[in-house]
Design a protein around this nucleic acid. Structure first.
Length: 427
RNA sequence: GGAGAGGUGGCAGAGCGGUUGAAUGCGGCGGUCUUGAAAACCGUUGUCCGUGCAAGCGGACCGGGGGUUCGAAUCCCCCCCUCUCCGCCA
């Protein structure tokens, strides 16, 4: 959520930057300003009336003590009208505040100046590419066929137990999952991230803090009986560690990493190109989350990008990095880099990581602040990125590394898997 | 799940209808003393909002929400959380 003060003081700059999102937010911004003005006017009037009431109450108390009952009664009668007035104004203030918030929730984050112009993912800017695209034989198989042939991921069994999009990993497939999770966690830890294990269920306040609520309510699984949500990403619980927290400047940088399964309803997004591991309702992801001083956050973002790069290089997966254009940029993000690995059999790029700086957009809702040297409070910057999401890494790995003998496992994983190849099963 | 106790400032802990934003202690910050440090002493020390160029002034906040009252941290109702005992249990 944008700070209303920022809209008030930098209206033109904010409006112009938001144009990059290919939508005119001026009507909403103006509406927000109007409501804000109305809200402040009401607040000023209410405060004045309350001050008057407070004075009267003290007076009445004093008179009662002195036994001046009659005088007290006179004053008491006078409060009735004031109270009524306050009640009426308070109702209007509540209403105005509610309407203002509803407007503010609809305004996305202001894109960073480096965000390219563009309407869709086709306009994203490729800023880096690495690795040679594998030349696979004609009969190369997509990962869903390989998964079946090698019997390492069982989509049908998952459907039986739960439903579509909940695969069962078996034998080498299961061990590969565990190996990747451990590999990522170890590498993140080596890069200075503290490993944490957050809950996999979150409450309403947490969902609201990072921006999943109220907007994307339909994307999360909701447990009605306890009013809890299954985590769509570790970003939610881990960033919320710092909700309602005032940090000290010297607490920076804060770097956490966490593995969690991620649960997403993906309502409405099913269809073509979502076969196999390409899109799931439950998947595994290791996340990195940072809380930074505003002056340092873009440096931190670069560092995160370099780190994720090194993970994919170690796995020897060809990938590219794209800077999301304004039209493709997520609602809460100011700048996002997506990492896409090359899926050899599908002949397409698959997103495996999204690294973003949210600046103060989340911190404002989270009330996540820090004290500077003058003891002044400011909103902190929040960042996060996947390091990494497993399914598409596995998809690319299976497809790119298929050989007549079997599926070759990247060398770095050997200490984690205990095997260097998944042998082709006997016919 | 059942019964009981309780949620107050960074922490501990008083207050249980009337200048109480809140005693006291610890901690933090500033100062005196000291060659320096400790100790001691003195002062200071919450958050948010509005208003103002500013000093300041005003309002709200004692788990959250609602109510009673001229006036609520204090009384009533609902919800959340914590602790103890019992039950169940990886």
């Amino acid at each position: 959520m944008l700070e209303i003060r920022r809209i008030r003081e930098n209206f033109d700059a904010v409006a112009r930057a938001l144009d990059k999102r290919r939508k005119d937010y001026r009507p909403l911004l103006r509406k927000a300003l109007d409501l804000d003005e109305e809200k402040r006017a009401l607040k000023t009037r209410i405060d004045a009336l309350l001050a008057e009431l407070n004075t009267l109450s003290r007076e009445i108390g004093k008179l009662f003590k002195q036994g001046e009952r009659k005088k007290a009664e006179v004053l008491r009668a006078a409060t009735a009208k004031l109270k009524e007035e306050v009640k009426e104004l308070q109702g209007r203030l509540d209403d105005t505040t509610r309407r203002l918030n509803e407007i503010l929730w609809q305004i996305p984050n202001v894109p960073h100046e480096s965000v390219p112009e563009g309407a869709s993912d086709e306009d994203n800017e490729v800023v880096f590419q690495w690795g040679e695209l594998p030349r696979l034989p004609q009969d190369a198989k997509p990962h869903w066929d390989l998964a079946k042939e090698y019997d390492i991921i069982d989509f049908e069994l998952g459907t039986k137990i739960t439903g579509a999009g909940f695969p069962v990993y078996k034998d080498y497939g299961a061990r590969l999952q565990r190996a990747l999770i451990n590999f990522f966690l170890d590498r993140n830890r080596a890069a200075g991230y503290t490993e944490v294990q957050p809950p996999h269920l979150i409450n309403e306040a947490s969902g609201f803090g990072t921006g999943q609520l109220p907007d994307k309510e339909g994307q999360m699984y909701h447990i009605e009986k306890d009013n809890l949500y299954l985590v769509p990403t570790a970003e939610v619980p881990v960033t919320n560690f710092y909700r309602d927290v005032i940090l000290d400047e010297k607490d920076f940088p804060i770097k956490n990493t966490a593995y969690t399964p991620c649960f997403r309803r993906e309502a409405g997004s099913w269809g073509a190109h979502v076969r196999g591991l390409n899109r799931l309702h439950q998947f595994d992801k290791v996340e990195i989350v940072r809380i930074e001083h505003p002056d340092q956050s873009y440096e931190a973002l670069d560092e995160m990008v370099e780190h994720v790069k090194s993970l994919l290089q170690d796995l020897n997966l060809p990938f590219r990095i794209v800077r999301l254009c304004g039209g493709d940029l997520g609602f809460t993000s100011a700048l996002t880099y997506d990492f896409e690995v090359w899926s050899g059999a599908q002949q397409r790029w698959l997103e495996v990581s999204s690294v973003s700086n949210f600046e103060t957009f989340q911190a404002n809702r989270l009330k996540l602040r820090f004290r500077d040297k003058q003891n002044k409070k400011h909103l902190a910057h929040t960042l996060n990125g996947s390091a990494l999401a497993l399914p598409r890494v596995v998809a690319a790995l299976l497809e790119n590394n298929q050989t007549p003998e079997g599926i070759v496992i990247p060398e770095v994983l050997l200490p984690y898997t205990g095997f260097d190849i998944i042998h082709r099963p006997e016919k």
